[in-house]
């Protein structure tokens, strides 16, 4: 088991390395993209561009530029923006990361609880009235885009009903957990619910399908023949096996969201997270920030994948040997 974890982490590091090279090449070696011209500004003369190119080390060979970039990004951590000269990239990301992490982690707890409960209830009552009701709510939640749902939530909680039942909802923004855990949760509760709606819908539907399949498996018949209660069969046998695909789905979704995919929710609720940072840096074509944000995002996706694989090995003994 330990060997498996180590092997998996080594391969994650290799993937990270490949991503760094790939992202670097996309942004700095793609024909037509000239970082020096970007930095020098719109009407710079060729002489100034050449000077900038030399000053930023952009005239050196690609592998060295890659190494310099990584050195600035990870070791010296002093990579600075090309657009807002002087502003450092790494602090921007480390400031934005806790916001995104708070948003996604809270939402993840909510969507896992709602999604798994909904899926189990629907599967346990398949064919009865409650099953299609839950599945309909699920498909509705999946169909509503986060930016629309977020705006509607804002409209209701900040607008018409703000002075009556939603008086407790604070204006949008972010309060660090270190400052006030209560305010932190209060500011995030609506973003959490908004972000969780989509995933709760997906997870409930996927889990129901998995459970219905599992309940037709031979081992469920064996469990019935053993005289176990229906609840125990559902939870200990069918759910346990159905959770395996849910975990892999969760790892991918969680990693992608931490990596910036929660952008829409962040924008709608004015949360200064990584998604928002990536969005603005892309608009400015601020290459170092994009590079940093993408590396950060990739790091979490790769890490989440590694964690999923390790969790998989715990959940599914058949994986451990491989």
């Amino acid at each position: 088991m330990l060997g498996f974890i180590i092997r998996r982490l080594i391969s994650a590091i290799l993937v990270m390395f490949s991503i760094s090279v790939l992202v670097f090449l996309i942004f700095f070696a793609t024909p037509g993209v000239d970082p020096a011209a970007r930095i020098a500004g719109r009407s710079a003369s060729p002489a100034i561009i050449a000077q900038v190119r030399h000053a930023f080390g952009l005239d050196r060979p690609l592998p060295i530029r890659w190494a310099l970039m990584m050195d600035h990004l990870f070791i010296k951590q002093d990579l600075s923006s090309y657009v807002n000269i002087g502003s450092r990239v790494v602090p921007q990301i480390t400031q934005a990361a806790p916001v995104t992490l708070s948003l996604v982690a809270g939402a993840a707890v909510i969507w896992m609880v709602i999604g798994v409960t909904g899926g189990v209830i629907a599967a346990a009552n398949r064919g009865k009235f409650i099953d299609p009701v839950i599945m309909f709510i699920g498909i509705a939640a999946v169909s509503v885009p986060a930016y629309w749902l977020g705006e509607v939530v804002n409209l209701i909680t900040q607008g018409g009903l703000h002075h009556s039942i939603f008086a407790w909802v604070p204006p949008s923004g972010y309060v660090p957990i270190t400052q006030s855990p209560g305010q932190w949760a209060l500011h995030l509760i609506m973003p959490w619910l908004t972000l969780a709606a989509l995933y709760a819908g997906i997870y409930a539907r996927v889990l129901r399908a998995e459970l219905v399949n599992a309940l037709n498996e031979d081992y469920v018949r064996t469990a019935r023949a053993k005289g176990l209660s229906e609840r125990r069969i559902l939870i200990r046998h069918a759910l346990r096996c159905s959770l395996i695909p849910i975990v892999s789905l969760f790892g991918l979704d969680f990693g992608a969201l931490i990596g910036g995919a929660a952008l829409l929710t962040e924008v709608v609720f004015g949360l200064p997270g990584v998604g928002l940072l990536t969005y603005t840096s892309l608009q400015n074509l601020d290459l170092p920030v994009i590079m940093g944000a993408v590396m950060y995002g990739a790091f979490f996706v790769v890490l989440a994948n590694a964690v999923v694989d390790i969790a998989y090995a715990f959940l599914d003994p058949r994986v451990r040997i491989a």
Binding site: D218, Y219, A223, A225, G227, S229, C241, I244, D316, R318
Partner: peptide, 22 residues
């Protein structure tokens, strides 16, 4: 349920799938 598995037990055709894999 009290009877199944205790007084009347059952063995199934395909032992490959009849046990919970996890």
């Amino acid at each position: 349920r009290a009877l199944r598995g205790k007084d009347i037990a059952m063995i199934f055709q395909d032992p490959m799938t009849a046990l919970t894999p996890v």
